[in-house]
Design a protein around this nucleic acid. Structure first.
Lengths: 260, 260
DNA sequence: CTATGCATGTCGATA
DNA sequence: TATCGACGTGCATAG
């Protein structure tokens, strides 16, 4: 990990240290008292306070207050970072981003601590039960939605968007299914309605529209009823079970092919 | 700022240090090699790698990889945090959140550095040119939109939503104006269309619908035309000038009253 | 490269 | 408290 800690150095010294660290694309953590200005899509000003500033190895910059999940100011990784010491002002960090053009300036009145290091992180990150997983499980097990439902496709283009699942029910009627992994909002209902309307126009046939989610807000239910749409609750825990079974199947398949 | 740095202590010692820090609601930064598991609305697994873990003074927990804007794992501030040392495993941090119920577990294989401190940050944060500012500036200077436009109100309730600006044009026709601070998407056009439709139904009169934004995607323009809506480009730089003038006016008024 | 939609989105305002 | 909409949303993916 190769960590270096600086504390008590002069600003002139720190500037050199930081410049080298930025050139080497090291991870930098600065704890200190600073002011922050931002201008770009919007503009903001943050008055003096004690904060944690992190410059990551890809140039991403975060200014964190001592509370809250989100950084108060930041710059994503596509940036040019410059450090300078201005005697009358302090230690200044400039981070400029292209597309959209945005400027971030952090001025340190006082630096308490600087940590510089090179972190190695190749660890794999796997996320389960995204909307994609939900869609795949339901497409593979459409009986969870209703009996004798035959899935014709997923992500079917409807107008300019895509409906999550496209199916045909036992009476031969076409079904458009929209999924939400979390509580469905009115927006989701309206989105489904748009698909149904476009489908009607394009294919001259009125499809059923079903919104599937673990829960629905009252407005959503009201909107669905008003628009003649259907809805169905889905239990994420149940889907999770299917997911695990599916994964284990995959793993055994992999094991199988390896053994061969 | 009162910073303490720990490096090279035994895990047993570190656990005590961390427990105290959590009780005191100090800011904690840990650099080390860890594995992370999350389960809640979704679920994820992050394999071993070197990372920065931050526990903030309100209990927010962030796991940052050495690159990228966003934390790879996290827990917002509404959490109970526990630290323990399990000899066969390592230093374990549990963070549990209610509503939604979510669990985060960080297991440190190796701790390189721990920083603990109490940060004081009362600095005011001001954001300029939010949509609200844009709306106020345009409502105060409607001639920017078009000549002889009279603003009747802002955030007028239409159905279940609110249209940003409600006005009447020189020919006496009602105008519904929807604003976007950034490139307008098709969603914005559809939203405006919904307002126009509802207005038509409720007031028995067809209003003009104008979408105002600094830029429009081609799909948005197509959608607007198809739905019989209008649009107008607005120059944020120009609005920014008005904003500054407006603010300075406010400031001088304050100065004025102070002098009195 | 742009446009579109998801996200453990988070966050704030409001009913 | 739940819901709704904005966000400097960021981010991946599809066309």
């Amino acid at each position: 990990m190769n960590l270096k800690i600086y504390s008590g150095e002069s600003s002139e010294e720190l500037v050199e240290v930081l410049k080298t660290a930025i050139t080497r694309r090291s991870l930098i953590i600065i704890l200190g008292e600073c002011r922050v200005d931002y201008e770009g899509r919007a503009a903001s000003r943050l008055e003096v306070g004690e904060r944690v500033v992190i410059i990551k190895q890809d140039g991403a910059l975060l200014v964190h207050r001592p509370y809250g999940y989100s950084p108060v100011n930041w710059q994503p990784s596509t940036v040019v970072i410059e450090v300078a010491f201005k005697p009358s002002v302090g230690l200044v960090i400039h981070a400029v981003r292209d597309k959209p053009r945005e400027y971030l300036t952090v001025v340190f009145i006082r630096v308490g601590l600087v940590i510089i290091g090179e972190l190695v992180d190749q660890g794999e990150f796997t996320m389960y039960l995204e909307e994609r997983d939900m869609r795949d499980i339901l497409a593979e097990n459409p009986w969870i939605i209703e009996e004798d439902l035959r899935v014709l496709g997923v992500e079917k283009p409807i107008g300019e968007g895509y409906v999550d699942i496209y199916a045909i029910d036992k009476s031969g009627r076409h079904v458009l299914i929209e999924l939400k992994r979390i509580t469905a909002t009115r927006e989701a209902a309206l989105q489904l309605y748009r698909y149904v309307e476009i489908y009607k126009k394009e294919y001259g046939e009125t499809p059923r529209g079903i919104l599937i989610a673990p829960s629905f807000s009252p407005t959503t239910l009201e909107t669905l009823t008003r628009l003649g749409l259907e809805y169905k609750y889905v239990d994420l825990k149940k889907l999770w079970e299917f997911f695990k079974k599916r994964e284990s199947k995959r793993v055994s398949l992999q094991e199988f092919s390896k053994r061969k």
